[in-house]
């Protein structure tokens, strides 16, 4: 009888440990960076990484995640290297964006496609620590009145637009506080039309969206500046894992090591600074 209750207690403890609290730190695992035998992988000896279809610059180049080019591809290979994988041991699969944010078992180790870490998503999946902090950016044509702005004060007299329901709109209203209230659009198509019609001087997007908009959606537009981050908790991009994955801990350790060594900053500089010519617009 005593033994039974002991067993029960152990079982309960195991269940308690296995239940994720939704904070994203995953299960506990002893991992030793550089030794892949300590990792709980989907396929032995292989790091299976999922990404979107298609993938686009500057996150990945030529719609090929396996070439190590582009910010996210480079980060994944750097993380893989920290964990002890050879580049040839990284296997790529493709998934949709939203279909990955559902509860349940996944057939890959983690997913990378600019997932913003949010409380809500964290309820159903797990996230690594952030590998990139989201900043807001200002986008316009090369002849925009926003060219050459160095501080938020330079933007206040301009006509600025954003998409409804975005942190960019909040940024305009709370930080930039332009003289003319922000124009608010349903879609990026409408925002582009307003730029073309000279009804706004510039648009604000978060940086990943700004890259997509300038590269794919609004031909001829450029990122005119990065806006200084506000608040002590900027939104961050993280790798997405299935809920309760024990791999999260190890990937976080790898990310921390990369951050400490300055590797992460170097990769960001190489792929996301657009040659370093995006000026920062201070508050």
């Amino acid at each position: 009888m005593k033994r039974l209750s002991l067993l029960l207690a152990i079982a309960l403890l195991a269940v308690a440990c296995g239940t994720d609290d939704g904070t994203g730190d995953g299960g506990s695992a002893d991992c030793e960076l550089g030794d892949i035998s300590t990792l709980d992988l989907k396929a032995d000896g292989t790091l299976t990484v999922a990404t979107g279809e298609p993938v686009f610059p500057p996150w990945m180049i030529d719609d090929d995640p396996s070439n190590g080019q582009g910010f996210e591809s480079a980060v994944v290979y750097a993380v893989a290297d920290e964990l002890g994988f050879e580049p040839g041991q990284v296997e790529w699969v493709r998934t949709g964006f939203t279909e990955a944010i559902v509860a349940g078992e996944k057939d890959y180790d983690f997913n990378v496609q600019q997932y913003t870490i949010t409380e809500e998503r964290d309820q159903v999946v797990d996230f690594s620590d952030g590998y990139y902090a989201l900043r807001q950016a200002i986008v316009g044509y090369a002849d925009s009145a926003a060219v050459g702005a160095t501080s938020v004060a330079d933007l206040q007299a301009l006509r600025i637009g954003a998409q409804i329901g975005t942190t960019s709109l909040d940024y305009i209203e709370n930080i930039i506080e332009p003289e003319q209230p922000a124009a608010v659009y349903d879609t990026n198509a409408d925002a582009k039309a307003a730029l073309d019609a000279d009804q706004v001087d510039a648009l604000v997007f978060d940086l990943p969206t700004a890259y997509f908009v300038t590269a794919v959606e609004i031909e001829g537009s450029v990122i005119l500046g990065q806006l200084e981050e506000v608040g002590d908790q900027p939104e961050e991009l993280g790798f997405l894992f299935e809920e309760g994955s024990t791999l999260v801990q190890c990937v976080n350790e790898a990310l921390a090591s990369l951050r400490d060594a300055g590797t992460l900053a170097d990769i960001e500089q190489e792929w996301l600074a657009q040659g370093g010519d995006i000026p920062t617009i201070s508050r």
Binding site: I164, G165, A183, V184, D186, D190, A194, Q199
Partner: peptide, 17 residues
Amino acid sequence: ILGVREAVREAQIITAR
């Protein structure tokens, strides 16, 4: 739809937030 902030738009903005 043109970015003009009239009543319905203001309501949408607050609702989205």
